[in-house]
């Protein structure tokens, strides 16, 4: 079974949990004392990932780190439909890769702001928030135009891709970092669509659909 070196409150670890839940892939979560224990920075953990960060997976001896790289692997290996990581459609694949890089941006701004507020990380909070708003505005506009074309997802396909999963946690947890989504209605409609996917799972800070 896949082992996920995991921290419950990490948006990047949640990306893997959510992907495996959507793909119905069983996994074992190995809790890492990321905070306050900084276990990912220990020599012991650096034997698993010399870069000293999580998430990391171990799939029957195959070890991989970096949140968005793991999404690529999981979808390529465990999604027989080929939708989540569209290997056979070069145009869509390129688009997916481009939005994965966009997700690096939301991670380094919106999710960084969350680490600043929640766990006292030493970041330039105003720069993080301004950066998050710049990306959210762009994504909101992008999704609004997608909706006009009758499309629901980040990439131009009738189905979601790993790009949606890479961006979703950074967006949906943004209020914790003091980044309001009030001004981004298309972004909010898109988060609701992600929540409605079969197999969707939550983490602390994220509410399921339709709770009242």
């Amino acid at each position: 079974m896949i082992k996920l070196y995991d921290y419950e409150l990490s948006a990047n670890c949640y990306k893997q949990r959510l992907m495996m839940s959507l793909l119905d892939v069983p996994y074992e979560s190995v809790p890492i004392d990321f905070f306050p224990g900084l276990e990912h920075k220990t020599d012991e953990f650096k034997k698993i990932n010399p870069l000293g960060h999580i998430p990391v997976i171990n799939d029957d001896g195959y070890v991989l780190w970096d949140a968005h790289a793991i999404l690529v692997y999981l979808a390529a290996k465990y999604d027989p439909s080929g939708h989540w990581y569209p290997i056979r459609d070069p145009a869509l694949l390129g688009e997916t890769a481009s939005w994965l890089l966009f997700a690096e941006g939301t991670t380094n701004t919106a999710s960084a702001a969350r680490l600043y507020v929640n766990l006292s990380y030493d970041f330039d909070i105003e720069a993080c928030r301004a950066g998050a708003h710049r990306l959210f505005r762009m994504l909101d506009e992008h999704l609004w135009f997608r909706e006009r074309e009758g499309l629901n997802w980040v990439c131009s396909a009738s189905h979601p891709t790993i790009a949606d999963i890479a961006i979703f946690p950074d967006v949906v947890l943004s209020e914790e970092g003091g980044v309001s989504r009030l001004d981004y209605p298309a972004l909010r409609r898109w988060t609701d669509r992600v929540k409605a996917l079969p197999g969707f799972s939550i983490m602390p800070g994220i509410f399921p659909m339709g709770t009242s």
Binding site: E8, P31, D33, E39, P204, F207
Partner: peptide
């Protein structure tokens, strides 16, 4: 239980409370 497991349990609970508090 390890400290990591105890902390995970407590942080999960607190993480669930956080958006309610805020």
């Amino acid at each position: 239980n390890t400290d990591a497991a105890i902390r995970k349990f407590q942080q999960t609970i607190f993480g669930q409370d956080k958006p309610i508090l805020e």
